[in-house]
Amino acid sequence: MPAINQPFLNKLRTFSIIEGISTLVLFGIAMPLKYLAEMPLAVRIVGSIHGVLFVGLVFMLMAAVSRVPISKGLAITGILAAIVPFGPFIFDGKLKRIGNMAELSE
């Protein structure tokens, strides 16, 4: 088993959680403001931030295939999880297990 790049894995986990929070803010705060309070600017701002974070997460997951390393299937799972509210928080459990297994093997 190749050595796990724990610092990169930790950055990936943190970035994934931040992206997941941005999804919840978009769906739970910005969209209700747009439709209930007629404030479309909220979705424009939060949606743009969320979009940048999502693209960044996709790039980090692609890099993680060689840098952590994780499987391509797990990277795709991470991308799909980022589309669903609360998905990144569930996916974080998988990344945490990888880090824990690396600590146990040392």
Rank of each mutant, 00 (worst) to 15 (best):
P7H: 10
P7C: 11
P7V: 13
F8G: 08
F8I: 13
F8E: 10
L9C: 09
L9K: 10
L9S: 10
L9G: 10
N10K: 12
N10G: 11
N10L: 11
K11W: 14
K11E: 13
K11D: 13
K11L: 14
K11H: 10
K11M: 14
K11T: 13
K11P: 05
L12R: 12
R13I: 14
R13K: 15
R13A: 15
R13H: 12
T14D: 14
T14N: 14
T14P: 05
T14H: 11
F15H: 15
F15C: 06
F15A: 15
F15T: 03
S16Q: 15
S16E: 12
S16Y: 10
S16F: 13
S16G: 15
I17M: 13
I17V: 15
I17L: 13
I17S: 13
I17P: 03
I17K: 09
I18R: 11
E19P: 03
G20N: 06
G20C: 08
G20V: 07
G20D: 09
I21C: 10
I21M: 11
I21G: 01
S22L: 08
S22K: 08
S22Q: 08
S22F: 07
T23H: 08
T23M: 14
T23P: 01
T23N: 09
L24R: 06
L24I: 13
V25P: 03
V25Y: 05
V25T: 10
V25L: 12
L26H: 06
L26K: 00
L26N: 01
F27G: 10
F27C: 03
F27K: 14
G28T: 01
G28H: 02
G28I: 02
G28M: 03
G28F: 02
G28R: 05
G28Y: 04
I29C: 01
I29N: 02
I29Q: 01
I29R: 07
A30V: 04
A30G: 01
A30C: 04
A30S: 09
M31L: 15
M31F: 07
M31T: 09
M31I: 15
M31P: 00
M31D: 00
P32Y: 00
L33N: 02
L33Y: 01
L33P: 02
K34S: 00
K34H: 04
K34V: 05
Y35I: 03
Y35D: 00
Y35T: 01
Y35P: 00
L36N: 13
L36H: 06
L36Q: 11
A37C: 02
A37Y: 09
A37N: 07
A37W: 08
A37R: 03
